[in-house]
Write a protein that binds this DNA or RNA. Structure first.
Length: 200
DNA sequence: GCTCCGATTATCT
DNA sequence: GATAATCGGAGCG
């Protein structure tokens, strides 16, 4: 088990190096823990797809803070998604946690995700992952090095796949999504919505 | 103020 | 494949 100093050192690196290294890591919130299988990198203020692209606001303030904290945002009027803030303090880069395999607290996770038909669906997709772990607005900005909310890195996995990020209209071409091959909890790729007005 | 629309998901055809 | 659900952030005037 790495100490918190190791976690901070790992997360302080460039986001494109940090993101693949988070695959296989264990994220725990209270009784439920999961092994991360799919993540996406958001490269701070330089990234048109990032919430930080237009500068610091009340919502994204946590992204601009020190690494090792959780950035939680609310979207589509009903879903929470969470990121691990990384990079040096002030860079606003973060890694979106898209999917994981529940490895502890299965009963709790199942009760929070009544529509999941199989255990592999419990934390498949960023909003489902937050729901399975009971992560909401109260967890925004929380330090990931102290219980009940902890992130424990694993050794870097042997094989990592990369591809375009999901659901973005901006910078949809950048291959900054990372996942573990042959993992049932990884969501299948869906191209970003075209976002064009009606034509005919 | 007011409008648009999103780092989504479940459900319907 | 298409779309409803549902609301707050961000842009504009």
């Amino acid at each position: 088990m790495p100490r918190s100093a190791d976690l901070t050192a790992l997360l302080a690196g460039p986001v494109l190096e940090v993101a693949p290294q988070l695959l296989g890591a264990t994220l725990r919130h209270g009784d439920v823990a999961l092994r991360l299988t799919e993540v996406e990198a958001y490269d701070g203020a330089r990234d048109p797809g990032s919430h930080a692209y237009r500068g610091r606001t009340a919502r994204n303030a946590v992204m601009f803070g020190p690494p090792g904290h959780l950035y939680v945002y609310f979207t589509y009027g009903m879903h929470f998604c969470c990121n691990v803030v990384c990079g040096p303090d002030g860079t606003a880069s973060a890694v979106l946690l898209r999917a994981g395999e529940v490895v502890d607290g299965l009963d709790h996770a199942r009760s929070r995700r009544p529509t999941a038909r199989a255990d592999r669906e419990l934390a498949r997709g960023p909003a489902n992952l937050c729901q399975a772990l009971a992560i909401g607005a109260a967890e925004n900005g929380r330090d990931l090095s102290h219980p009940p909310l902890t992130l424990t890195p694993a050794d870097a996995p042997a094989e990592v796949r990369t591809g375009p990020r999901v659901g973005l209209r901006q910078a949809a071409d950048r291959p900054w999504r990372f996942w573990l091959p042959d993992e049932a909890s990884v969501s299948s790729y869906r191209p970003a919505a075209p976002g064009r007005r009606t034509t005919s």
